[in-house]
Design a protein around this nucleic acid. Structure first.
Lengths: 209, 209
DNA sequence: GGTAAAATCCCCCGAAAGCGTGATTTTTTA
DNA sequence: TAAAAAATCACGCTTTCGGGGGATTTTACC
């Protein structure tokens, strides 16, 4: 039997290493390459063909969701396993809709990971157990708002501690525009101040810290 | 040869699991118990004697540094291995001064972890390789300011998105007092706005997110 | 090539945050 | 028990933030 070739995509080195270590326990799996962002992932896919790509949902710049769509478009044979960060479990259905073959929580056990990989490799759909159990009411899944590219930039600069005038100067736009973006962000995140905004942004890994 | 009994203390479930998985590769090591905070760690130590405690530096409420001191005081035979979060590597010397037998970055390889455990078990001092190399200039280690108990409370509420008036009401103190605490926090963190304050607080795990 | 979404710009105003500079009281600890 | 640290309260002032309205121009996509 040939080994299942795997690409791991995650911006957290720790997770990358951890997953690699876990996968090394399975003789029939080989981690062909790893990537820490979407662009690198595409490059690696071109250079080293794989059977399965394990993709973190929250990636910087281009999200795992977009990456999944791109992978399924350019490399339809590659199965995508979605993986979510520590606390949030959103976007799952979007990933599935984009063609993901399964979903893993990062706290998944060795057995769960094995099951996910085997399922994906066989073309089946795998979902982490606790999704089926605890998320019966799918509306309980926290909604991560869709943030546009520009909004993401502004958000990052807010987290970086810049004031609106500073952001305006940096992005070569009017203070009013920054203000609009900021207001839209507050509305989208459904919060009323910078503090909550930053907390959520960091929690859902929407910014670089 | 008897197995080395290990306790892992970390508030990140992922790290706990990852470390457990990694340690399971060593036949002569057994993870006796795990804990996600200092109190639980002490309880577990009383219930299940171990040889080595792997302690995360940044723990909620009681830090890993304080925990290390407590462990060395109450359980002098237990070797403590300090472990730091993803990006920061502070407090190391303090941990060592408090009796830690070594220091690990969380991104450490299997080999490094093995070396650390073996060293610690033999009573030697182990430091992650990249500490010796990259942190030659120890003054480059970011200083995490000492935050008093009350300040920590205020900080948590700021991160929770409360305004100063709300915090004052919640803590039954004057708005002026909250303002003072906030000002002291900004000064201690050497930042000039809430955004940066929260970013650092979360980065160094000084608050619950 | 039309339309929706994103990005841009504008104004007002009150509330909150931030800065400076104090002081007093309580608690901790050497 | 005395000194140090923490916690409390106070005032005036400036800047920024946040909420409420808008409007116009690019992009992106079907």
């Amino acid at each position: 039997m040939e080994k299942i070739r795997v690409l791991i995509v995650d911006d957290h080195p720790m997770v990358l290493e951890g997953m690699k270590a876990l996968l090394s326990n399975f003789e029939y799996v080989t981690v062909t390459s790893t990537a820490c962002n979407a662009y690198e992932a595409i490059d690696k896919l071109k250079a080293y063909p794989v059977d399965i790509a394990i993709v973190d949902i929250n990636l910087p710049e281009v999200s795992g969701i977009e990456l999944t769509a791109k992978i399924k478009k350019e490399f339809p044979a590659v199965k995508v396993l979605a993986m979510s960060t520590f606390k949030e479990r959103s976007y799952i259905s979007q990933m599935i809709q984009n063609g993901a073959s399964g979903y893993l929580v990062k706290s998944a056990s060795k057995d769960e990971i094995e099951a996910a990989i085997v399922s994906a490799n066989e073309g089946k759909l795998y979902l982490s157990l606790d999704i089926n159990t605890t998320d019966v009411n799918t509306e309980s899944i926290p909604q991560i708002p869709v943030v546009s590219r520009r909004e993401k930039e502004v958000l990052q600069l807010i987290v970086d501690g810049l004031t609106n005038p500073q952001i305006a100067e940096k992005l070569f736009i009017s203070l009013h525009t920054v203000d609009s973006h900021r207001k839209n962000l507050l509305a989208k995140f459904n919060v009323s101040n910078t503090a909550s905004l930053i907390r959520i942004a960091i929690k859902y890994n929407l910014v670089n810290t």
